[in-house]
């Protein structure tokens, strides 16, 4: 009975989740985000061999290719050695420039006052760039489905390896902002429109831009609805047991909670578990890590706190990821599993 109440220190609840569609992995740079997201993806793929999974990196410094020792691009490609997992790397900047060039296409009169206004406006809505990059991602997924219509792949879960830049998910608050802005702008153009027309702006082009913005708003609210549903989406935070990393994690969790996003797991990476080691520095460093671990246990008592060891080398390649990711499901025990630390296969 007691076991039921205790929150197990693993990602079982995430990986064995029945309905999960979107899984975000986030944290500051250098804490092992990519390794963790790859590990989760590998475990998901192993747990459900009959379903397809997709791992997407939106980090401009793409490193999925390095984690799997295999080149990936912006189209989904299957991982060698794990046939039900695909990866893709997407440049989030592309979408923004896309929209702006599109706006320029509609409107190539250099004297139109509305043109520069539109550019400024689309550029200054908080969160719109993130929203657009997610739209870009979703567009890619859709395109893929449409392109291979004969054997359309439907992914059971899509895992996002998010970029470490601050407010990855700031766009979750976007629909409300956008709605307000659009109605204001419509008002304004209703009043100024005739005047602008007189000055030589085309009415039809403006209509197009409005439609575009409306479209964006609609799809953003759709995405938003899915992302704030804890049955469909969850967020896994990755951190290391150090002050600044914990601080950033706390802020991220607060922010995600303010967006009504479900967060219930934290992966603490790079732990030394140095009790049995001879190394003096490792001992004292482990002591420090334990201090922060204790504090975390107090702060996040209703979270799944997954403790992962620091290994002797970089975790690269599917086989190594399989070995490492095992401990996402089954707590790492330094006495029993110590062999893992130097057990990785050489990859080049």
């Amino acid at each position: 009975m007691d076991m039921d109440l205790e929150i197990e220190p693993t990602l079982q609840s995430v990986i064995l989740h029945e309905t999960l569609k979107w899984l975000f992995v986030g944290g500051k740079g250098g804490v092992g985000k990519t390794t963790t997201s790859s590990s989760i993806a590998v475990q998901l793929a192993l747990a459900y061999p009959n379903d397809q999974f997709l791992l997407i990196s939106t980090d401009p410094a793409h490193n999925l290719s390095d984690a799997f020792c295999q080149k990936f691009g912006k189209d989904a490609r299957k991982v060698e050695g794990l046939s039900n997992l695909s990866c893709m790397e997407i440049d989030p900047e592309a979408a923004m420039t896309d929209l702006q060039t599109q706006a320029q296409q509609y409107n190539n009169d250099p004297n139109d006052p509305l043109k520069s206004m539109m550019n400024d406006m689309t550029g200054s809505i908080p969160g719109i760039d993130e929203a657009l990059s997610f739209m870009e991602v979703l567009k890619h997924i859709k395109n893929q489905k449409a392109g291979e219509n004969s054997n359309a792949i439907s992914y059971r879960t899509i895992i996002f390896d998010t970029a470490p830049t601050g407010h990855t998910l700031r766009f979750l608050q976007l629909p409300a902002t956008l709605e307000k802005l659009l109605s204001k702008f419509k008002d304004l153009s209703g009043k100024l429109g005739p005047m602008l027309n007189m000055l030589g702006g085309g009415g039809a082009q403006k209509q197009d831009i409005f439609e575009k913005l409306n479209e964006i708003q609609k799809s953003v609210s759709e995405v938003n609805e899915q992302f704030t549903n804890p049955d469909l989406t969850t967020f896994v935070c990755v951190c290391i047991s150090e002050f600044l990393s914990l601080y950033e994690t706390e802020r991220m969790i607060q922010e995600l909670m303010s967006y009504n996003m479900d967060v219930n797991s934290i992966v603490v990476n790079q732990l030394l578990f140095a009790e049995a080691d001879d190394c003096k520095r490792c001992h004292s460093r482990w002591k420090m890590q334990k201090k922060y671990l204790d504090q975390m246990a107090e702060l996040y008592e209703d979270y799944h706190l997954v403790k992962m060891p620091l290994l002797g080398s970089e975790i690269r390649g599917v086989e190594n990821l399989k070995k490492f990711s095992k401990y996402l499901l089954q707590p790492y025990d330094p006495k029993v599993d110590n062999g893992l630390v130097f057990d990785l296969e050489e990859t080049t």
Partner: peptide
């Protein structure tokens, strides 16, 4: 000290916010 009493400090932060 934020680093020595991280949990307490963070809890204070939460209630402050």
């Amino acid at each position: 000290s934020a680093q020595d009493q991280y949990a307490k400090w963070t809890k204070l932060n939460r209630s402050f916010d």
